[in-house]
């Protein structure tokens, strides 16, 4: 156990290092912060002064190593644009993104898994064909287009849900949250549904193929033969077994949602980190982009670790081998 954790940590350290080099060099090549930040009336001297103030006048290697040594001390640098330390900037935006991501994953699981089990159990029904058709549609329509349709239907025509912004929030342990606030929840619903549609389709398909596979296993036939009532058969024997792949995929998807829900946050003007990332790339705000991506790498490492532990909890064969 301990050696496994240590090895995992070592691997993620290497991963973070590679990621930082890639992003650092990439941002250096494609953008010039001085050109973006300088106003039109800047003289050559002003530009040089700005460059040295930002630290971008030094050679790339020197910049990278000073960044690296600062990072080891927990200092991710200062944003070029906001002129504030990067870490608080990101952390401040994180709750908004996390809330929507968790809500979307929750909707995906609560709707997708039952639908999938239903279609796996009743393969020949008409309703199963309808579900299968709808999931294909949900998969194929681009995310931003779904977002526009949602706004059109719920905000413009029906006028039941707000189309943009975060609405009122409640302070809890010093964090602003929308979850405990009716107005906040209303604002959160459309972006969450937008993100959830794809997840619902995916979970439905996963649960359906899992159900079809598990239902043909000997232990399911044997459980029927020993006279176990059907509700229990599905709840204990089936669900437990199909959850194993679902947990794995859900973990990866959660990471993806937190890291890259940029499009949805932009369409709904949701003040999350996705939007921050987009703005920062736009403004060549290298410290923010680098720090953001490194945090994302760490987050994936943590999520994968949690998935591994859950996996072992669900499947005793892994626990006791």
């Amino acid at each position: 156990m301990l050696s496994f954790v240590l090895r995992r940590l070592g691997q993620s350290g290497v991963l973070v290092l590679i990621m930082s080099i890639l992003v650092f060099v990439g941002m250096y090549v494609v953008s010039d912060p001085v050109a973006v930040l300088a106003s039109d009336d800047f003289t050559e001297e002003d530009r040089i002064a700005l460059a040295s103030e930002l630290g971008v006048d030094r050679p790339l290697m020197v910049q990278y190593f000073s960044f690296l040594s600062n990072m080891v001390r927990g200092d991710f640098g200062t944003s070029f644009v906001y002129n504030k330390p990067v870490l608080p900037l990101i952390v401040e935006r994180l709750p908004a993104t996390l809330e929507v991501a968790f809500l979307a994953i929750g909707i995906g699981l609560c709707v997708g898994v039952p639908l999938g089990i239903y279609s796996g159990l009743n393969r020949k029904r008409k309703s199963t064909k309808t579900i299968s058709f709808l999931t294909t549609v949900g998969y194929s329509i681009p995310n931003f287009w779904q977002a526009l349709l949602l706004i059109l239907v719920f905000a413009v025509w029906l006028k039941v849900l707000p189309a943009s912004g975060r609405g009122d929030t409640t302070m809890l342990f010093g964090i602003e949250l929308s979850f405990f606030n009716v107005d906040g929840l209303r604002h959160m619903l459309l972006p969450a549904i937008n993100l959830a549609i794809y997840k619902i389709c995916m979970q439905t398909r996963l649960a359906r193929s899992g159900t079809q596979e598990v239902m043909f296993q000997d232990y399911m036939t044997f459980a029927r033969a020993k006279g176990i009532p059907r509700p229990r058969l599905i709840r204990r024997h089936l669900l437990r077994n199909i959850m194993i792949p679902i947990v794995t995929i859900t973990g990866l998807e959660l990471g993806g949602l937190i890291a890259f829900s940029t499009v949805t946050e932009t369409v709904f003007s949701w003040p999350g980190i996705g939007k921050l990332l987009l703005d920062s790339i736009h403004h060549a705000d290298r410290p923010v982009v680098v720090a953001y991506l490194i945090l994302i790498v760490m987050m994936f490492v943590v999520i994968n670790f949690v998935v591994d532990v859950l996996y072992a909890l669900l499947d005793p064969r892994i626990r006791y081998t």
Binding site: D218, F222, A225, R236, R240, D315
Partner: peptide, 25 residues
């Protein structure tokens, strides 16, 4: 079949390793 399965007719499966659900005690 509910009042018959397990109650009046028991069943023993070919492969005991696959007849028992691997994730339940």
């Amino acid at each position: 079949f509910a009042p018959i399965r397990g109650k009046r007719i028991g069943y023993i499966y070919q492969n005991p390793m696959t007849a028992l659900n691997p994730v339940l005690t």
